[in-house]
Design a protein around this nucleic acid. Structure first.
Lengths: 235, 235
DNA sequence: TGTACATCAGTGAACGCGCGTTCACTGATGTAC
DNA sequence: TGTACATCAGTGAACGCGCGTTCACTGATGTAC
């Protein structure tokens, strides 16, 4: 994950990149020394104070930057995946009318999105490592910020699922709960994906199955079992 | 979580307890200083070296101790929950014969286990905080050790589900995958449970729904949808 | 049972080092008039 | 357009402090004979 697109002062950017790098390779953010960071960035230790009050502020700046760069690409992924299965200008077909078509479509979008998401993870490992590490790290401020990020991602996912009609109608809350679980799991799995390149295909399949099971189970639990069974039987 | 039952040397125990406490309140393990730890334990800084080579060794000792103390109680929980629904000496009824009974039983065990698990978490918050924090922490050694712990827990869960017949027959692998996801999620949620006492009831319900959805969905995905629908309809 | 010795857990002083933070400074860029 | 001043990003030296680690020591417990 490069921070170079932004209009930050050079030194600030260098410090953020150094923190991201050191965090990924060896240390959690709160075990990082100011001088170590400055050394990695090729700057005077003092320069840190020109841009940040403390490490939490640095962490927040990184998280904000990362979130901005990741959030809309993730939505793009889902849209692209949905369109690759059913072009945007096709007539809408409800789950009631053709469950089989809709199920196939949902499964396909699921598969595509998982694949694209993990591609994205593999391209920006440091951002995800920092996010996952600090989500349960020692700083309450960063924990809170990252939980908010995850919540936003979940909300995006729920909105997209609704808009793209990827599931039979659920209550807003149920849909959000599922999205939350999926988001959490995908972030967890992204760590495994980064660390175990030889198991990547397997992890993709696991993720797909997890999402499918969770959504199908939720559909059954909310009284859409009959529709689902119909879709499965006619296959 | 107290370490007092073991036969460790006093100083070793004091150091482990101090680490657990400091880890929970402020620092990740690798941001902890040796002198800080000794101070908390009321010992000479030097004493650390009598028992541990470095912080990883300390971390491993804690993890081992914790795992020993948590693993079998967790299995106990499931057994107790299962027996509270169907006494151990009742005749076995297969899912085919009476899906409704088995579903009700599974849901009940689910509910009970979730409740007891979170009780356990609330009683031993520091152990869970350390586990979750270091699972994605900076030390590869502790990460590996904790992943192994999670794998063991998952295997236990899969074994228990099979033995107590809490789900229709699945392949060994599928069952294990579900157990893995549930384990991961429960540990994640345990952090929320610890941090947000006012949302505890809500978190319990969420966890139950997550497990129910995941297992039902998996059953549907593996061709047991008909049995499941039968069980749901006759309710 | 007594004696001699080894092991073990813990102490206290001392070391050199890297740390965070402060201060006064520099030179480039932006802005008012 | 030029001038004067302010702001900003970055520097370099200096400080006192807490750190990890080492050494030589102590006193209690265990063990061989």
């Amino acid at each position: 994950m490069s921070l170079s697109k932004s209009v930050l002062a050079q030194g600030k950017r260098l410090l953020m990149e150094a923190a991201l790098k050191l965090n990924a390779s060896t240390r959690s953010l709160n075990a990082l020394s100011l001088r170590e960071l400055a050394r990695e960035a090729g700057l005077n230790p003092n320069t840190f104070y020109r841009h940040f009050k403390d490490f939490d502020e640095l962490g927040l700046a990184i998280i904000e930057e990362m979130t901005q760069q990741i959030r809309s690409p993730l939505r793009e992924l889902r849209r692209k995946a949905a369109e690759s299965v059913v072009p945007a200008d096709s007539p809408v077909v409800t789950w009631q009318e053709n469950p089989r078509l809709n199920l196939a479509r949902a499964m396909q979008v699921n598969r595509e999105t998982v694949k694209l998401f993990f591609d994205y993870v593999a391209e920006n490992p440091n951002a995800f490592i920092l996010g996952i590490r600090e989500l349960h790290g020692a700083s309450p401020i960063l924990r809170r910020a990252l939980r908010q990020v995850m919540d936003d991602f979940s909300q995006d996912m729920a909105d997209d699922v609704r808009e793209l009609k990827l599931m039979p109608e659920l209550t807003q809350d149920s849909l959000y709960d599922i999205a939350e679980t999926i988001t959490r799991e995908m972030f967890q799995l992204s760590m495994e994906y980064i660390e175990q390149p030889e198991r990547r295909e397997q992890i993709c399949i696991k993720a797909e199955k997890m999402i499918t099971s969770l959504t199908m189970g939720s559909a059954v639990l909310h009284g859409h079992g009959a529709i689902l069974m119909g879709a499965l039987q006619t296959e």
